[in-house]
């Protein structure tokens, strides 16, 4: 019997995406075991990698990393296609969309910190919208907007600052 070897041709780009995604997945998993004061209030440290990928490489790689991370993490945690996964996907897609436009802003004035804050607001905005129309179709969730916005600003700022430092370390400004 002959053994057939299936070899997938990979490019350097694929390897780069895989490496970054692996780090992002690892960070997501670490985060998933950390206690959270409220469902949904999470630092979102994996977004550091998405943002880093976008600045260091390009938007396409960042998109791959962001989306792969959501799918892989949910498969590992057994949440694939569950509401948690849907929320996660919505948040990621919206924050990626925001980043796609935000990266066009003049980089002279806008650093990763600002972009991170914008993307975390887009993230939570999309999730709250999904919760409102699908999971809890009632106006009472508006009570949560102030808390989630405050968390978005805080964690968005911290993540952005970490990304900025990372880029400064690896790159020249």
């Amino acid at each position: 019997m002959t053994r057939s070897i299936i070899k997938i041709k990979t490019t350097l780009l694929d390897h780069q995406i895989a490496k970054l995604s692996a780090i992002a997945i690892g960070l997501s998993l670490i985060e998933s075991v950390l206690p959270s004061p409220m469902p949904g209030v999470k630092p979102g440290i994996a977004n550091i990698i998405t943002l880093y990928a976008m600045y260091r490489f390009n938007f396409k790689i960042a998109m791959w990393v962001g989306i792969l991370r959501v799918f892989a993490t949910s498969l590992i945690l057994g949440q694939f296609l569950s509401p948690t996964f849907m929320l996660s996907l919505t948040g990621s897609v919206l924050s990626l969309l925001t980043l796609y436009f935000a990266i066009k802003l003049p980089s002279k004035f806008f650093s990763p910190i600002g972009l991170s804050v914008l993307s975390s607001f887009a993230h939570i905005g999309g999730q709250l919208f999904l919760v409102r129309i699908w999971l809890i179709p009632h106006a009472s969730i508006y009570y949560l907007i102030p808390i989630y916005s405050a968390a978005a600003l805080l964690f968005g700022f911290i993540n952005g600052w970490i990304t900025y430092r990372l880029l400064k370390h690896h790159n020249s400004i």
């Binding site: 003049p106 980089s107 002279k108 004035f109 806008f110 650093s111 990763p112 600002g114 880029l167």
Partner: peptide, 9 residues
């Protein structure tokens, strides 16, 4: 990265 000021941020 060419950030010179954090004005936008």
């Amino acid at each position: 990265l060419r950030t010179k000021s954090f004005l936008g941020d």
